[in-house]
């Protein structure tokens, strides 16, 4: 039991991401309103972005912006600088998330123009007649 709690405390960050992901996932599959589904998808993306950024953390390291002349003369210790690769990946992932949100909102507006509602059940009813 003590080993279990110790392992939870060592990896507490994953619990945060999984909880955030569960909130977003529940909103995506449990809610009947399309805008709420979209907001759930955004929360899901935020959880994934947080997880990736945290995978680059090193305890006691600095941000990946170096002193140019010092770096050119003496070189850089790998353990002293945070891993820059997840930051780059997530920078592009945020832009994709913005684009996806924009296109999804456009499609939602188009659905509202045609059916006059954003509720899933009412749209299905109007489609079925």
């Amino acid at each position: 039991m003590e080993q279990f709690t110790a392992s939870i405390i060592a990896k507490y960050n994953y619990w945060i991401y999984v909880t955030l992901m569960m909130i977003g996932f529940y909103a995506m599959i449990g809610k009947r309103n399309l805008v709420k589904k979209l907001i759930g998808m955004n929360i899901f993306q935020t959880a994934i972005i947080l997880m990736f950024v945290s995978s680059g953390v090193k305890i006691g390291a600095k941000i990946p912006i170096l002193d140019k002349h010092k770096a050119l003369e003496h070189g850089i210790g790998v353990a002293g600088v945070v891993n820059p690769l997840p930051h780059v990946l997530m920078l592009t992932a945020i832009v994709v998330s913005v684009s996806v949100t924009g296109v999804a909102l456009a499609i939602l507006l188009r659905i509202y123009r045609k059916y006059g509602t954003l509720d899933e059940d009412e749209i299905l009813e109007k489609l079925g007649k």
């Binding site: 832009v95 924009g102 909102l105 507006l109």
Partner: peptide, 15 residues
Amino acid sequence: VMSNMAILFWVLGSN
């Protein structure tokens, strides 16, 4: 990115 952000807001905001 600048012009696309503006386009997204203008088109979505004015239906």
